[in-house]
Design a protein around this nucleic acid. Structure first.
Lengths: 240, 240
DNA sequence: CGAAGACTTGACGGCGGTCAACATTGGTGG
DNA sequence: CCACCAATGTTGACCGCCGTCAAGTCTTCG
């Protein structure tokens, strides 16, 4: 399978293919130039490159144009907890809304293309209109909600249910962005990272995925996942 | 030990003893009447009473004036995950900033006194000034941050470290509110609830607390906790 | 005084972690 | 084009943390 290719974003943001999912989508619809002129940089980064480091104070902020990224916190013992994965259209550092050091690291999973803005003017712009504020607010609360949902998962559910729900929520998110085709989707997340996101180990994620595959609910190969039986998978996610 | 007594808030918010910790603290300092006149209700509720139910659409929102409360999500199997505890001055439902059903239940832990506001006008007021918006934003991000910190704890740390960090962060929060006296503080949270907050069981929290006490780092009795050796406790929280 | 909630302690077992070996894939440079 | 290497996936053996079950005590309150 060919690796995902990241192309830099087009010159104008007006017809941006992922703009409708961006936090500033309302502005793109109304006054696309307002975004284009504020966009400072377009960058392409190789897979595994660090985009922000924990403790860094961001002067520039990014929307993910193509590719996948993720963010995580590091433990004193070297372990890490992945907090979320990003897909095209996602804004990488909502927490930078207020100035100060970032409490997590952001890293490119695949090769990525980024659209960069100057932090201060970017948020000043978002706060100027009611509509944009509301969009920003919705994004923050949605991420907050997802964090607490994951908290419930990790705190109270067995590994099988966690993995099943992870797959379901990933499918739902990708479907909303039109990234589900032929009933399946690209999932360039190695099992070790799924483990770091779900509070498990690589070995156990591997066994769990294998058992779900054996149940017939999913099939997958390198970088690709297909849900064959949603009802079955939802049953597993309910944790019995 | 006498149960905590909840008295209704005073008539005017101007000299509210916990107002400085409220999300609308800047407004209290500048134009206290703006808060007093918007406050619709003052309510006293018995311990264990439900303040909001999961799925409910709040028309009225509350600041906790006295007593303790907590919020949690329920699982299909009857288990639950506590998301946070509230102390006087805390606002109970930041998520209600955007209209829609609440994704969690809020319950009184002790007897509580609440100051109620009409949801819509309350947030409209908070969004009107830059200073209040910033205060709101800071609160949301702080809670979000705490949620992800807990996520790391539960996902990656052993029981001993979770409990130790829980005690440390509780002490820090209460100290900031002037609720630490004689080196100790009131902690009316039963071990079963600590377990529900940390993804553990009552039995295991009990053993863990006992082992921390044996190490000499803390001492506690019913409803009261004292940290005797911060360095020791921090070592435990680091999870060697 | 009775009942409900909270705390404590012991015995036992299982989910998921640890360690280790090996297979497979894809990228890189010679 | 091939050799090599790093990253990833897979499987088995073993074990420990923490959950489950259960009994009993203590405290609080009606």
């Amino acid at each position: 399978m060919r690796p995902m290719v990241a192309a830099a974003a087009p010159v104008s943001c007006e017809y941006c293919p992922v703009g409708q999912h961006a936090v500033y989508a309302p502005a793109l619809a109304a006054t696309p130039d307002a975004i284009t002129t504020r966009r400072h940089v377009q960058t392409v980064l190789a897979a595994r490159r660090t985009i922000f480091s924990e403790g860094e104070i961001p002067k520039r902020v990014y929307t993910l144009f193509s590719g996948w990224a993720y963010r995580y916190r590091t433990l004193s013992d070297g372990g890490r907890q992945i907090l979320s994965f990003f897909v095209p259209g996602d804004f990488l550092t909502l927490q930078s809304m207020k100035p100060g050091p970032l409490p997590y690291t952001v890293k490119a999973l695949t090769e990525v293309a980024l659209c960069g803005f100057e932090r201060e003017t970017f948020f000043a712009f978002l706060l100027r209109s009611d509509e944009l504020r509301e969009s920003l607010c919705r994004d923050v609360l949605a991420q907050y909600d997802e964090a607490e949902r994951t908290l419930v998962d990790i705190g109270r559910r067995p590994a099988l249910a966690r993995v099943a729900r992870f797959l379901l929520s990933m499918e739902e998110r990708l479907r909303a962005r039109g990234l589900v085709q032929d009933g399946g989707f690209e999932l360039p997340i190695p099992q070790g990272l799924i483990a770091d996101a779900l509070g498990l180990t690589t070995v156990h994620v591997n066994r769990t995925l294998a058992s779900i595959r054996d149940s017939g609910a999913i099939e997958f190969g390198r970088n690709r996942m297909r849900i064959r039986d949603f009802d079955e998978l939802r049953d597993l996610a309910e944790c019995r």
